[in-house]
Design a protein around this nucleic acid. Structure first.
Lengths: 242, 242
DNA sequence: GTCAAGAAGATTGTTGACAATCATACAAAA
DNA sequence: TTTTGTATGATTGTCAACAATCTTCTTGAC
């Protein structure tokens, strides 16, 4: 997947600035895990690698900060953000609310007919993946596609920007909530219900369903994170009272 | 009011960088209306005014863009963002959801006792202002303080950042929704109910109340904006289908 | 009179060097 | 042994100049 940062999407399609190109490359490395959380990113090194000066690199790092992928500390530079369990929980909580708003707006949108066929096809695909435990990765991929489909259909540009950003940040944790066949079965039922109420134009119910699904996903992810007892240090935010 | 941009808050308290200082100054001018929506901000001019080079100015403009106060167009520079009615509506919709989340989290927070006295005092102040039609401005100011009080008490840093940013963007439109004594009376009742359910720890009801209040505020503001038929052009976003 | 092509000016994008600041290592004293 | 002070090296912050690009004005043809 390309996975361009949210902040790059609304800009000019042609002639991406150097900063944007560099941000896209770095973003890919962070999201795929090539750059591990906590890793320090130094301007000079990046500048030398891409054969540019430090100016565009600085700007690229600010773009990544805007997407929450790096944390910039004054006089100390940029670190790949490492989310604590609490912060993952926070992001899921926000997503629960805003995904609810998104799906309500879509269900109440008169133009929603245009995307219903694609949506239904993807959900059917989802059901297929849910039946076969071996298709776990494809399941997660399909959910991502559905999410992009819905967010992309959104007229509210600010909501779209925020959701894209939150999506990017939780990409690494998303699969956690869908790691068991039982969870996937629960998930696919939720999506099927959602499609149904969107078709009916029932915004309130769409919101309720979306919210319940993200909350369930959050609880499953948190549970697994706690079990795993991952490194949860938050680089650069020593004021945390965890 | 200082009105520092949201993005400046979590940074180092001492030794603000030049970019941050410039951003704070420009932010003040935009929020207070000295820089009108649609106005072009040119790097060289700002650099000369503050007697710095264009580097920090560039960075300051990116910070302001992060807060939604300016819109940066590739190869064309920065403009003070001018929100269309539709965009104001969008922001209010997002705020309705996230204010709901905020107040629910606060109502469910065991530590909420610490801020309840201050909150109750401010709401009492609010009731006083609501009785006197001449105190309209003070009413709006008090609502802003209450908002900051609640957002400041939030443990969820990401939610706080997003809310601060949305708050900054809608500052100019906020008073619109509170311009009539009738609306203020409605508003103060909502706040009183909110304090009550927060004290009781009733998160669900807190969410419902907050959401209803912001939605009502949105409808009132939109109504007035439509009546006023203000300039609603969105600089730099010609793709708008208004 | 209208439209198109081109030149001039203005503005942003990029660069490399310099200055300020911070982290680390080492040494000296308690 | 621990702590404090200092020096050194590394890294970010800032600057001024150059390059690329866009806008605007002028000129010319139809």
């Amino acid at each position: 997947m390309p996975s361009t940062p949210a902040s790059l999407v609304p800009r000019a399609p042609l002639t991406l600035s150097l900063a944007e190109q560099i941000a896209a490359r770095l973003s890919e490395r962070i999201v795929t895990g090539i750059y591990a959380p906590g890793r320090r990113i130094m301007e000079q090194a990046v500048a030398e690698e891409f054969v540019v000066s430090r100016g565009p690199v600085r700007e690229a790092l600010r773009l990544l900060e805007k997407d929450g992928l790096v944390t910039i500390l004054p006089r100390r530079g940029a670190l790949v953000t490492n989310l604590s369990i609490g912060e993952v929980e926070e992001i899921f909580d926000i997503r629960a609310m805003l995904n609810g708003l998104r799906d309500r707006l879509i269900a109440e949108d008169a133009e929603r007919e245009h995307m219903l066929p694609a949506l239904e096809a993807e959900v059917a695909n989802l059901a297929r993946c849910a039946r076969d435990p071996a298709l776990g990765d494809e399941y997660v991929e399909t959910v991502s596609r559905i999410d992009r489909l819905l967010t992309g259909a959104l007229g509210n540009r600010r909501l779209k920007t925020i959701l894209d950003s939150l999506m990017l940040q939780t990409l690494r944790y998303r699969q956690l909530g869908l790691s068991t066949p039982a969870r996937r079965k629960q998930s696919v039922q939720s999506w099927q219900k959602l499609v149904k109420v969107i078709r009916e134009g029932n915004g309130e119910e769409a919101e309720r369903i979306a919210r319940a699904r993200v909350t369930a996903s959050r609880d499953a992810a948190i549970e697994l994170l706690r079990r795993g007892t991952r490194k949860t240090a938050v680089p650069g935010k020593p004021s945390g009272s965890d």
